[in-house]
């Protein structure tokens, strides 16, 4: 089979398929390349829309400004905090729950599973959640961004599917040796679950790194806000207002637009780079993870 594949002539079908794939790859890459090119280009050329693919001129001024900006660095530090601590809380709450969900002989587990599943389809909604957060005294605290979403039913189901695919013999052997349930979970089950943990870390960490809506609703204090909120101010709000000002022909606005353009692209790169570097290394894990998740529970 393999030998015959190698010997097979390249057909028109192969060419068409490869060309379509290449077009898709280029369509995906182009905006990313453009952002990186713009981030190191002469801001005057960027503001005039002259950067179409490769950089025009060269400057690292945008990056310097980003790294000197107190707010951006504060947001960056906050985001790292939320991502690291938040992901640890996510794992501690979600993964053990997924394990227990495989033990249908435990009284109440099936009912609790129904309780969990129901929340995937019906929720209290934005306002009741907002009122609850307020009444618990979590509003405008770091806690709200760590606790809200600490447990994910969807990811819990992925964990359950993964754990129920593990061989039962090892666990049973551990029980016979007198190991406790918690001991077995940590010493026998988790060491076999590195692929699952990799996927969970990726899912949760990406979620924390990229989220802005909770922070927008539940916090107003700059000191505790994550990077995405600062990004929103720089990328979305500034742009619209700068564009409106530029329309009125104000020189100050044009000047401001150069600086804004410089910072904008650099900050996109700086904020997205960590995930862009990490994900290719985790590719085989999350591909597996999506497969586990697709198994109907």
């Amino acid at each position: 089979m393999k030998a015959s594949r190698k010997l097979r002539r390249i057909s028109a079908f192969d060419i068409i398929v490869t060309v379509i794939s290449l077009v898709l790859v280029i369509l995906v890459l182009y905006p990313l390349v453009l952002v990186v090119s713009s981030s190191v280009s002469d801001p005057v050329a960027v503001a005039a829309g002259e950067v179409v693919l490769l950089p025009k001129g060269f400057t690292l001024d945008g990056y310097l400004r980003v790294f000197q900006d107190k707010n951006i660095m504060l947001g960056y530090a906050n985001t790292i905090f939320y991502t690291v601590v938040g992901t640890m809380i996510n794992l501690a709450v979600t993964v053990p729950a997924g394990y227990v969900m495989t033990k249908s002989e435990v009284p109440g587990v099936k009912v609790i599973m129904m309780l969990f599943l129901f929340t995937m389809y019906f929720s209290g909604g934005l306002i009741p959640t907002f009122l609850l957060v307020n009444s618990l005294g979590l509003y405008n605290t770091r806690w709200v961004l760590l606790i809200l979403g600490a447990f994910s039913v969807y990811n819990c189901i992925i964990c359950r599917s993964f754990f129920s695919g593990l061989p039962k013999e090892l666990e049973e052997a551990a029980f016979i040796d007198g190991s406790s349930y918690i001991g077995t979970f940590f010493k026998v089950v988790l060491p076999l679950s590195k692929a699952l943990l990799g996927v969970m870390v990726l899912y949760f960490a990406v979620g924390h790194w990229n989220s802005y809506f909770s922070a927008m609703i539940y916090t107003y204090d700059n000191e505790i806000q994550p990077l995405q909120l600062f990004l929103r101010r720089i990328l979305i709000e500034e742009q619209t207002s700068a564009e409106m000002m530029a329309g009125s022909g104000d020189e100050y606005a044009a000047q401001q637009q150069y600086v804004a353009a410089l910072i904008k692209y650099a900050v996109i790169v700086v904020s997205s780079l960590p995930l862009m570097i990490i994900y290719p290394f985790l590719q085989k894990y999350f591909e597996k993870g999506v497969m586990i998740g697709s198994v109907k529970g």
Partner: peptide, 19 residues
């Protein structure tokens, strides 16, 4: 092991349903 998830769901998923 299940307790943290259960508490979370009762407070933050079912709590808002009360609201």
């Amino acid at each position: 092991l299940l307790l943290p998830a259960l508490i979370y769901v009762l407070i933050f998923s079912y709590g808002p349903m009360y609201g």
